[in-house]
Computed example of a mutant assay.
Amino acid sequence: MTAVRLVLLGRQGAGKGTQAVRLADHYGAPHISTGDMFRAAVAEETELGVRAKEIMDRGDLVPDEITIGIVRERLAKDDARSSGFLLDGFPRTVAQAESLEDLAAPLGGLHAVVNIDVPLDEVRERMRQRGRADDTDEAIDRRLELYERETQPLISFYEDKGLMVTVDGLGTMDEVFARLVAAIDEVKGRS
């Protein structure tokens, strides 16, 4: 199986993390979650972790330069170079997407950007139910507002490049997974 190089988009609570783990296993590619990397840094109380925690506790997103640096280091590792990658939580902005183009180019570029589409009311309820300390109503609303303002433009950016695939994120985990695999396989067959 050839390496797969994907970005997963979708509002927080859309199931990106859950589906990314399954897709990574299915395609044999590492799941690279910036959220997991930041949570680990917070738990370890690294300098970056302390800075990231302050930012995330406010419901804000970690600045591009920090996030891009972490992703650059991760994509340089052997597993991402040989087996591809599934990026979850990156890019969030057009500036990050432009940086990703440069980072992914030596690896063969992206196969697709997959948007898991789940309505706002549904993701808001899912986020409340997962019970994370940073999932207060105010932080949830702030993150969703930031997503709409900063991340939604990525859909247009990637549509213009012919890389965007939108998949319905409602239904069982298995139903959504089957839709994702079908969409990714179709895109990979074209590249």
Rank of each mutant, 00 (worst) to 15 (best):
T46V: 13
T18E: 09
V187S: 04
D25R: 14
D134C: 01
E150R: 07
A105L: 15
R72A: 15
A139G: 09
D174M: 01
S33I: 00
R179Q: 00
M1F: 12
G109T: 10
R74L: 06
E159H: 01
S82T: 11
V71G: 05
G162T: 04
V42A: 05
E145A: 13
E54T: 12
D88N: 12
M1Q: 11
F85A: 04
E125H: 07
A52R: 05
R11P: 00
A40F: 09
Y158T: 11
L146I: 06
P106E: 12
G13Y: 04
K77D: 15
A97I: 03
P153R: 01
V165Y: 07
D135M: 10
A24D: 09
A24N: 08
K53H: 08
R58S: 11
V21T: 15
M127T: 05
K188D: 15
A95L: 08
V71H: 06
I155S: 01
V62Q: 03
Q129K: 15
L144T: 08
E148N: 05
G189Y: 01
M173H: 14
L103G: 10
I70D: 13
P106T: 09
I155L: 13
H31D: 05
E138R: 05
Q152L: 05
P153K: 01
S83G: 13
E175W: 08
E122G: 13
D137F: 08
V118H: 09
D168R: 14
E145Y: 09
I155V: 03
S82W: 08
E159G: 01
R190Y: 06
A20C: 14
A97H: 05
D135T: 10
